[in-house]
Design a protein around this nucleic acid. Structure first.
Length: 480
RNA sequence: GGUGCGGUAGCCAAGUGGUAAGGCCGAGCUCUGCAAAAGCUCUAUUCGGCGGUUCGAUUCCGCCCCGCACCUCCA
């Protein structure tokens, strides 16, 4: 089944297809600004894009997808943070890039094939600005900045459907210091010593020293790594305007051809029914949630539990629901392994080719649903439905469940969910907890249940849970 | 004011012109000294409100109410 995806530009659901002769699908996803920890809302977009990337690889082949996701490492916010901490810009951005990558790994995001940075592609950006100036689409302002002249691009606003009339209204208060029109946006920002510190580069011909405007970086990186026309450009809805609108203007005026053949925007994550903010106390990073005892895979699952083009309400309850839902899938996987006499270690690689399964069993519907406009919530629902309905044999069977394991493996690859199929090693409890547990185990053996129950409560109060088995016990840390 | 998305069980969340997926929570049962885990079973006569179209609407249309987001540098 072909992958169909909603296109924000035409507002229709269209099939994704590579357009270049080499058959490589070119995919650009706007990445994070590295000045602070990425929050789970940021990761919703990256997780959704990761699922898309995985589907594309299955559909076109692993070596037939080129996925680029940039890092914005110079802009007002990164510079502002560096100034606030009195540290060089690169210190700040390298630090947050490292943490971003750690979170990406924890969330099982496939690394993009290229991860360009704004500061690493200054030359490409300057080149583009020069072309735009030569073609009359950009002009130098008195202070040495360069602005894109919106009036030279009649197609502006097609993506966000914003009209020039409205632009003017909303921009009445914007700084119009050096612009010909309030709607014009910066391609190059002139150096301001008091704000920019040591951050500056030689500018385009005819302009002063300074730094690139935000929008030009994506246009330049996309052009240099993927070419003038790409097959898909994605990001969060907030980027629709003005970022992507401006990218279209810059790229198409510079290159004279279609910039992106398909646009996709994922909706925002809400927390407790409203937008995340530090002042509301509902601002979560992956680290926050891991510190509370949640597994990053549960976070990933929770982020996929709603349709990507619909706002998703994230709560700790929904995270807990995700955790339990994953356990159900794991339970199904363990049963398949057990009935098929296959070890857990074999499972992740059980289906070794990078192609989608040639034969689908009960989970084929999951692939179909994902290919239908990335309906992750629907796909997860069908996954559970299929698992619940699956009939295991009542007695020993020579059947090894190879189709079932292969398709489960593939489906887990699509969602990017890693299952924990080995017995979990319980966290090592501190000595005082172990001592209490030993006392309780002894009391229980002596059938002194009153003491045993009192000790259980004491252990629970200290944040641990004692799980009895016939032959012994294990200790598990309770969630904070 | 403009643009877009949405209001479905206690919570999260799919979906369709023909009578409501799935997960969580909860309840019951099995197992168990207790607890946990696991398994099984049950859980919306109803889809924000009011009209309309229709043999039939939660699904299409109109109006109203409510929520969320974006509107020059937030994924």
């Amino acid at each position: 089944m072909a992958i169909r995806l909603f296109d924000s530009l035409t507002r229709t659901t269209r099939e994704l297809q590579p357009s270049h002769a080499d058959g490589v699908f070119r995919f650009y996803n706007c990445g994070p600004t590295v000045y602070a920890p990425a929050h789970i809302g940021n990761f919703r977009t990256f997780v959704v894009n990761d699922v898309l990337r995985r589907l594309l690889e299955l559909e076109f082949g692993a070596n037939k997808v080129k996925h680029v996701r940039n890092l914005t490492d110079v802009d007002d916010r990164t510079i502002g943070q560096a100034k606030k901490e009195s540290r060089p810009l690169a210190d700040i951005t390298q630090h947050w890039t490292k943490l971003f990558h750690e979170d990406c790994t924890a969330l099982n995001l496939l690394p993009p094939h290229h991860e360009p940075t704004a500061t690493g592609t200054i030359k490409e950006q300057v080149n583009m600005i020069e072309v735009l100036m030569e073609k009359g689409h950009a002009y130098r302002a008195p202070d040495g900045s360069v602005y894109f002249k919106l009036a030279t691009f009649p197609g502006y606003g097609g993506l966000s459907r914003i009209k020039e009339r409205e632009l003017k209204i909303t921009n009445a208060v914007a700084d119009a210091d050096h612009k010909d029109s309030v709607s014009d946006f910066a391609l190059w920002k002139a150096y301001k010593p008091e704000e920019d510190g040591a951050v500056k580069w030689p500018g385009p011909r005819g302009a002063g020293e300074g730094r690139p405007g935000w929008h030009i970086e994506c246009s330049a990186m996309s052009k240099s790594l993927l070419g003038d026309t790409i097959d898909l450009h994605t990001g969060g809805v907030d980027l629709l305007f003005p970022h992507h609108e401006n990218e279209i203007a810059q790229s198409q005026c510079c290159n004279g051809t279609t910039f992106a053949r398909h646009w996709y925007h994922s909706e925002h994550l809400l927390v407790d029914g409203t937008t995340m903010s530090k002042s509301k106390g509902n601002y979560y990073t992956l680290r926050d949630l891991v510190a509370k005892g949640y597994d990053p895979m549960a976070v990933r699952y929770a982020l996929l539990a709603g349709h990507p083009r619909k706002q998703l309400n994230f709560t700790l309850d929904s995270l807990h629901a995700a955790e339990s839902a994953i356990k159900r899938i794991e339970s199904y996987a363990k049963k398949l392994l057990s009935y098929g006499a296959i070890t857990a270690a074999e499972f992740p690689d059980y289906f070794k080719t990078t192609d989608k399964p040639k034969v689908w069993g009960v989970l084929g519907i999951v692939w179909d649903m994902l290919c239908d406009d990335l309906s992750t919530a629907l796909a997860l629902g069908h996954l559970h439905k299929a698992i619940n309905a699956f009939q295991f044999p009542t007695g020993p069977s020579p059947y090894r469940f190879e189709i079932e394991l292969a398709e489960l493996s593939k489906v887990m690859f699509m969602f990017g969910l890693r299952l924990s199929l080995e017995e979990k090693k319980s966290a090592v409890a501190p000595a005082e907890i172990t001592a209490l547990a030993e006392k309780r185990w002894a009391a229980k053996a002596a059938k002194d249940f009153a003491t045993a129950d009192a000790l259980r409560k004491e252990i629970a109060a200290a944040g641990w849970s004692m799980l009895d088995r016939k032959d012994g016990y294990s200790l598990e840390q309770l969630k904070k």
